[in-house]
Design a protein around this nucleic acid. Sequence first.
DNA 1: ACCGAATGAGACATCTTTGTCTCACCAGAA
DNA 2: TTCTGGTGAGACAAAGATGTCTCATTCGGT
Lengths: 190, 190
Amino acid sequence: MSHSVYGRLMAVDREQILRSAAALLTRKSTATMDEVAKAAGISRATLHRQFAGRDALIKALEALGLTQLEAALDAARLDEGEATGAVRRLVAEVEPVAGFLAFLVTENQLFEAEAMNEGWNRIDDRISALFRRGQESGEFRIDLSPAWLTEALYGLVGSGAWAVQDGRVAAKDFQFMIVELLLGGVRRSA
Amino acid sequence: MSHSVYGRLMAVDREQILRSAAALLTRKSTATMDEVAKAAGISRATLHRQFAGRDALIKALEALGLTQLEAALDAARLDEGEATGAVRRLVAEVEPVAGFLAFLVTENQLFEAEAMNEGWNRIDDRISALFRRGQESGEFRIDLSPAWLTEALYGLVGSGAWAVQDGRVAAKDFQFMIVELLLGGVRRSA
DNA sequence: ACCGAATGAGACATCTTTGTCTCACCAGAA
DNA sequence: TTCTGGTGAGACAAAGATGTCTCATTCGGT
């Protein structure tokens, strides 16, 4: 029997397809199934065999993105140690899934489904809680709401991912740029 | 003759259409011409009379967005006074066109045209120059590149516009949130 | 070498969107 | 009132995307 082998190979393929699809759809959200297939290096037929249709593809994209984001939050151990360190770990862990995050943030058409809104809210809450913890511990300023800081983090990560993908900044600077700007801002510390 | 009257009314209508189109397409970039028309409160026929087709609509959207952004940069007088103050003025002036900016940033499909890339580069350069000026004057830290700061500003403005439009934060806080986070970061100044 | 599963290429009908057109209607100016 | 330019509603063909199917080919395991 080779079930496990095939299963693993297919899983890898699916994830690879979803990654390239996320990258493409982030740049051109009107991309055709044919374009998605070509971007993944497969035929449209195979794409359709893996994902029943466009809706299924989008749903899978959303599901995998949310799953990976949750995993990143877990790995970052947001409630351990100082909030500052947790933010650094968060950005570091989020980096590999930044493409997915950018896609999920911009693709609000999905949110009409109400269903996965829940998964998104869970992530929002966890990140908000981190910022709130930092405020209560005195590390973070209190005149910026956790909700806004969460949104801002999404925006910065998205900008960072796009800038890297577009070659405007080096990938190795991703984490540093985002963390430093988010934590310290652009003004020179006196 | 009523040329001027009709001309003015049509101009107002066109801009109103473009504004609602930008708002809609930012959320759902696959929106139909029919949906765009409904969102603008007009019929699809009238929409087609104003804009020859979808491409023309997108181009007009891009043209107006860039024009308004340039106007905002002019009004902000980026090269006057301290860089910090210029950043504050910039965010304040950009606020009314934040919806357009969010649309332009996410809609990279246009950038295949190479043509208006020039207009976008001009804006990039002006904002980058502001950050560089702040670094040279000693106001801003020098370990974050002007290119990244420019991208980050786009991301923050986009996030802010989306958060306001979505009711997650109050519109009156828009400017404060963005400027404060961009300038000072989340860490409490010691 | 053989076999089976998966793939790529392409044909095909169907559905959606687009772009154009016509016609009835309404509001403002003469 | 009468005329006129703009609009909304709807019909229509054309173009594009989608989803399904078939068949030849290729790749991996036996």
